[in-house]
Computed example of a mutant assay.
Amino acid sequence: MTEARQPTDLLQIGDVSDRTGLSLRTIRHYEEVGLLPEPQRSPGGFRLYGHEAVERLLLIKRMKPLDFSLEQMRELIEVREQLSRGGLTAGRRAELLEHLRTFHALVEHKLGVLRERVESAEAFAVQLADETRRRD
């Protein structure tokens, strides 16, 4: 039997945790630091989140392993939201798109650094495996 959702399709924090793979504590932390807007509350006081909050948390989750600062996360979220709202002047839209391109370049750079670290770690693992075989 499918669980009935509230008419507005809002999710409680446990459901958001399940969908994002983030702990309740982490979700509350992102609220506290302003990366996630304060959620609505049920009549019983439970936090209620919409689809946008889940999407935002998934974005944050993608940024976290790349060592983005909270400010960078906040900035990217704002750029994406402004672009999604529409109604922008051509100049403002171009400015926001350039900002998005800058973030893309930063992600590409961070990926390059991570690839180098993985290659180094793989070479080290091979070295240790060889050493282990030699000593057996």
Results as ranks from 00 to 15, higher is better:
E3H: 08
A4H: 09
Q6K: 13
Q6F: 07
T8V: 12
T8E: 15
L11R: 02
L11W: 07
L11M: 07
I13N: 00
V16W: 02
G21C: 04
G21H: 08
G21S: 02
L22D: 00
L22P: 01
S23A: 10
R25Y: 13
I27L: 01
I27R: 00
R28M: 00
H29E: 02
Y30S: 03
Y30G: 09
V33G: 06
G34W: 04
G34E: 00
L36E: 01
P37M: 11
P37T: 03
P39R: 01
R41D: 05
S42K: 12
G45I: 03
R47T: 00
L48D: 00
H51I: 15
L58K: 05
M63F: 04
D67W: 14
F68W: 07
F68Y: 09
S69F: 01
S69C: 07
L70I: 14
E71F: 10
Q72E: 15
Q72W: 02
R74G: 12
R74N: 01
L76N: 06
L76P: 05
I77R: 00
R80V: 05
Q82A: 13
L83N: 08
S84D: 09
S84Y: 06
R85D: 06
R85Y: 03
G86N: 06
G86K: 03
L88V: 12
R92E: 10
E98Y: 06
R101K: 06
T102F: 12
T102P: 07
F103Q: 06
H104N: 14
A105H: 15
A105Q: 15
L106Q: 14
V113A: 04
R115Q: 14
R115L: 08
V118P: 02
S120F: 11
F124M: 15
Q127G: 11
L128M: 13
R133V: 05
D136K: 12
